[in-house]
């Protein structure tokens, strides 16, 4: 369980983020350059200028200007780059940490789950981007960490391996009761693994964010919208039916065969909401909805409120818009997001 309140100034970059309530699975989201990686690095103790408190369980990792050195924070960290040791093989990289307690999963299990068998004898410079990233992920898990700090850990993986890696992290976190902090720009990764969200936004030149339960964070300004609908297969493609129209499914993590039809919930990312000029048709293959203006950058459609990526200009109360895609929630996450009640 992680609680923190951190402030940091680095040149002309300033960051202020907090998680006042303890959270176990925290996602950091926000546009590129807003400070997700810096916040992760500050939590790990790498940012000397950071001030504030970091509590992990009943342990105080940092208070004020002082804190434990990163090597004493029991980290399991995946950086933006794999950062494998070039003088070692993939296997030696995986076994690099010599933790005092046994890791949550065995070496063999990590190798099997992340499909690393064939690359074990290779050196770091002989690995592809995706392979190196999987080794980095395995290395972090095998360090027997108290918490996992992952910076876009799945970005270079193909869909099948991403799902396998997601499942492994999910299981490790669940089995060991570890704390997870995941920086990502992929909504489906955040909703698959996390139940709290820090949505970092720049306000008056300061990157700011506060952790909120995911369900509460959704639908707010700048945050994705949770909608109910149903899934169906049409010509081999999965479609999400919402408001009587079919939306393109952008991602559907952890979705089993039997869940590919029937009631479902999905998230609509603000960047997929586009207002249409009066009288203009929707782009080819995209549905058209008639909504009501709500404030400068939000639209109401029935019960649901969508945030627009750019504020609306002056105009009528009624605004036509389209939705470019939906991220279908994994069935087991629906409860966590209290979808059942909606």
């Amino acid at each position: 369980m992680l609680r923190f309140s951190l402030a940091l100034t680095k040149g002309d970059f300033a960051l202020q983020a907090e998680a006042p309530e303890p959270c176990q699975r925290l996602a950091l989201m926000g546009p590129s350059g807003v400070g997700k990686s810096t916040l992760l690095s500050a939590l790990a103790g790498f940012e000397g200028q950071a001030q504030g408190t970091v509590h992990l369980g009943d342990q105080t990792l940092a208070a004020g200007k002082t804190g434990l050195a990163p090597e004493s924070r029991r980290l399991g960290m995946v950086f933006q780059r794999p950062l494998l040791f070039p003088h070692l093989t993939a296997e030696e990289n995986l076994r690099f940490a010599r933790p005092p307690t046994p890791p949550p999963v065995t070496f063999e299990e990590v190798v099997a789950r992340l499909d690393l068998g064939p690359v074990l004898p290779r050196r770091a410079h002989q690995l592809s981007g995706g392979e190196a990233q999987r080794v980095a992920l395995g290395r972090a898990v095998l360090a027997a960490p108290s918490w996992l700090l992952l910076d876009e850990p799945f970005s270079n993986l193909d869909p099948a391996r991403r799902e396998a890696a997601l499942c492994l992290i999910d299981e490790v976190v669940e089995r060991q009761g570890l704390t997870l902090v995941l920086a990502t720009h992929r909504l489906e990764e955040a909703v698959s693994l996390c139940d709290h969200l820090v949505s970092l936004r720049e306000q008056n030149g300061v990157s700011t964010g506060t952790a909120q339960p995911l369900a509460q964070a959704l639908g707010g300004s700048g945050a994705p919208t949770l909608v109910s609908g149903s899934l169906r297969e049409a010509g081999g493609t999965l479609e999400f039916c919402y408001g009587g129209q079919a939306l393109r499914v952008k991602a559907a993590p952890f979705l089993r065969e039997k869940d590919r039809a029937g009631p479902a919930a999905a998230l609509i990312d603000p960047q997929d909401v586009h207002a249409l000029p009066a009288g203009a048709p929707a782009p080819l293959g995209c549905p058209r909805f008639e909504g009501q203006r709500q404030g400068a950058d939000q639209l109401r459609y029935g019960e649901d409120v969508f945030t627009l990526p750019v504020p609306l200009g002056p105009g009528d109360e009624s605004v036509a818009f389209t939705l470019l895609g939906a991220t279908v929630l994994p069935p087991r996450r629906r409860d966590a997001l209290a979808v059942a009640e909606r």
């Binding site: 790990a44 790498f46 050195a69 990163p70 090597e71 004493s72 029991r74 980290l75 399991g76 960290m77 950086f79 780059r81 950062l83 494998l84 040791f85 070039p86 690099f96 940490a97 010599r98 933790p99 290395r139 972090a140 360090a143 700090l149």
Partner: peptide, 23 residues
């Protein structure tokens, strides 16, 4: 030497002496 490697070693719990010796 990529400074990131020192961070990676630190994140894996290595003391300064161990980082020098092993990285």
């Amino acid at each position: 030497i990529d400074p990131g490697l020192h961070r990676a070693a630190q994140s894996l719990g290595l003391s300064p002496w161990a980082r020098f010796r092993r990285v």
